[in-house]
């Protein structure tokens, strides 16, 4: 059974087209309507891309990644950030405002540089 979700806002570019219809079957997106090619690709998730579903960690950048759990990965990240003299938090442009707020408050606590893609 294909279910159609209407009036979805497209999370790709700054146009935020709000008239997208998404076709969902068994919890998977099977098609879109009204979206442009780029928006369609974001929802459909092609490009042969590799999606991570578990946190990965490695001490040395030349080593291979090892699977870990969220608790360890976040704890280790927090340690790196706290021990750093001048940490940089960069990106932010493809997450919601609620998450942006949390991350900026982290930046304030640890005395970081906080910057997004508008800097480019």
């Amino acid at each position: 059974m294909v279910e159609i979700v209407k009036n979805v806002v497209c999370p790709f570019c700054g146009c935020l087209c709000d008239d997208i219809e998404i076709m969902v079957e068994d919890g998977h997106i099977v098609g879109t309507r009204n979206a442009c090619r780029i928006g369609h690709a974001k929802f459909m998730h092609f490009e042969g891309s590799v999606r991570y579903t578990e946190p990965l960690i490695r001490e040395n950048k030349k080593d291979d990644f090892k699977k870990t759990d969220y608790d360890t990965a976040i704890e280790e990240s927090a340690r790196l950030l706290v021990e750093s003299k001048l940490p940089l938090l960069y990106g932010f442009s493809s997450i919601g405002c609620e998450a942006q707020r949390e991350a900026i408050l982290i930046g304030e606590k640890i005395g970081a540089i906080v910057d997004n893609t508008a800097t480019v």
């Binding site: 999370p11 700054g14 442009s93 919601g96 405002c97 707020r101």
Partner: peptide, 14 residues
């Protein structure tokens, strides 16, 4: 012309 969908959001929040 904003590239990513929430560039402006970050500028607003910050």
């Amino acid at each position: 012309m904003r590239g990513h969908y929430n560039v402006n959001g970050f500028n607003q929040v910050l």
